[in-house]
């Protein structure tokens, strides 16, 4: 039982796709191998891993409504490789996108299913997560907030002798509840996908999202990009202007 997790993000670190692969891998039994395809130089290595795999899990970001271009190249090589060697690992897909609606990944999922048909590979299903970038925010914020709860409890305990354990516990439960609500779709459909992968079975594609109203998500994203653009300097370089090549 060998499962290959292919991170399809071009990012070297802090990719949501890699994070989702790590989360999914937690529930998978048997041998697990994590790989990443960033350019053509990675193809041979990843294909040699796929040779011995029973399941391949692709985790990818949505780029312009579909599969990123460097992965289109990899899929073509994988099709030729699997047909030539007579391989038929089951293919599962985890997609994430910057917009809040997970259903914006529909075309991407269809492209992956079409790829499977062309390559004579069984498609096992998947999950598409809207607002995926929020996962990067929560994975940083949650440990920080937990750390702050522990810190304030400790400081209080050292100063007054009262560690306020009850308050700390309540604060932690509140944080955990907020996290659970935000991620409930990812947790539910993720668990369903993990179950399907473990029995090498199939599940339908679950389109879900971070459980946040879209207007609130848009507001958070706007603030996030304003801050990043101040630090990046773009805000001072014609941030929203119609740039032309002559400029």
């Amino acid at each position: 039982m060998k499962t290959i997790f292919v991170n399809c993000s071009p990012k070297k670190k802090m990719s949501v796709s890699g994070y989702l692969n790590t989360l999914a891998a937690l529930g998978i039994k048997g041998e697990k191998v994590k790989e990443q395809v960033r350019n053509k130089g990675d193809h041979e290595r990843v294909l040699s891993q796929i040779k011995e795999a029973e399941a391949v899990v692709f985790s990818m970001p949505l780029f312009v409504d579909s599969v990123p271009s460097h992965i289109m190249n990899f899929l073509a090589d994988m099709e030729a490789f699997c047909l030539e060697k007579g391989l038929a690992p089951k293919v599962y897909v985890i997609a994430n996108n910057g917009f809040i609606e997970g259903r914006q990944n529909k075309a991407l999922m269809q492209v992956m299913q079409n790829f499977c048909k062309r390559s004579h590979l069984p498609f096992g299903g998947g999950i598409a997560v809207g607002g995926g970038v929020m996962l990067n925010v929560t994975r940083i914020l949650f440990p920080i907030q937990c750390g702050l709860v522990v810190f304030s409890s400790l400081m209080n305990g050292l100063q007054t002798g009262n560690f306020m354990l009850r308050e700390a516990l309540l604060a932690f439960i509140e944080l955990a509840l907020v996290m659970t609500v935000l991620h409930c779709g990812v947790l539910f459909f993720g668990a369903r996908l993990i179950k399907a992968i473990n029995r090498r079975g199939e599940c339908s594609v679950g389109y879900t999202r971070m459980m946040l109203p879209s207007f609130l998500f848009a507001l958070v994203a706007d603030i996030f990009f304003i801050i990043i653009s101040i630090f990046g300097g773009g805000i001072f370089k014609g941030w929203l202007a119609r740039k032309t090549e002559e400029q």
């Binding site: 990012k11 460097h70 653009s229």
Partner: peptide, 13 residues
């Protein structure tokens, strides 16, 4: 291929 850095939004529009 695009590196997904968002620099074309945040650094050099």
């Amino acid at each position: 291929p695009c590196q997904g850095c968002f620099g074309c939004w945040t650094k050099h529009p």
